[in-house]
């Protein structure tokens, strides 16, 4: 059993029972979680920004950074592990996309991240079955590969399931 820790803009997947796929302290970033029931593989990408067009160079070194390049990169990785290359049959869940207290939503990158992610998912015919998005708290996400159970935590709050 080991932890697969994903930093900002990183993606990864595991099919080893007992592994935990984890990312820490999502602020406006969003974790896209893919579960492939057929191969019992869990994948996650820590998306920081909605679109790669602001810095195409970054895509070469860290495609997971952006929604439009991170999701295809994760699908490709999971395809190499025996999953469907277009994610058919995947269970998709989303967490993160928090914001600062701002009624005008000026700084709401989290919302833009979530919208961009959904747009990319739709292109693959995918949609999330569960989400914990928005609000004003950071989130740490842990996914148990054996069970697919997703635990969310935030400093000062009780853990909750997605």
């Amino acid at each position: 059993m080991s932890n697969l820790i994903l930093g900002v803009g990183e993606f990864g997947a595991s099919k080893t029972p007992g592994d935990i796929v984890k990312t820490f302290a999502l602020g406006s970033c969003v974790a896209v979680i893919f579960m492939c029931p057929k191969t019992r593989t869990v994948g996650m990408v820590h998306v920081a920004l909605p679109e790669s067009k602001i810095n195409p160079d970054k895509v070469k070194t860290r495609p997971g950074y952006f929604a439009d390049t991170g999701i295809p990169a994760l699908l490709k990785l999971m395809a190499g592990m025996g999953c469907d290359p277009k994610g058919r049959g995947f269970i998709v869940k989303l967490a993160g996309g928090a914001k600062i207290m701002d009624p005008n939503n000026t700084f709401n990158i989290g919302k833009r991240n979530a919208l961009s992610i959904k747009k990319v998912l739709w292109k693959y015919g995918l949609g999330s079955v569960a989400e914990d998005l928005g609000a004003t708290h950071s989130r740490t996400v842990s996914v148990a590969v054996s069970t697919g159970e997703i635990i969310l935590s935030s400093p000062g709050r009780s853990d909750w399931k997605l």
């Binding site: 900002v8 302290a25 406006s28 600062i100 207290m101 700084f107 004003t136 400093p155």
Partner: peptide
Amino acid sequence: IVAMMCGSQSSDSLQYHL
């Protein structure tokens, strides 16, 4: 605010006004 949006493991993260 940007730093908090980038991620923080502190209970006060994002609990302020822009």
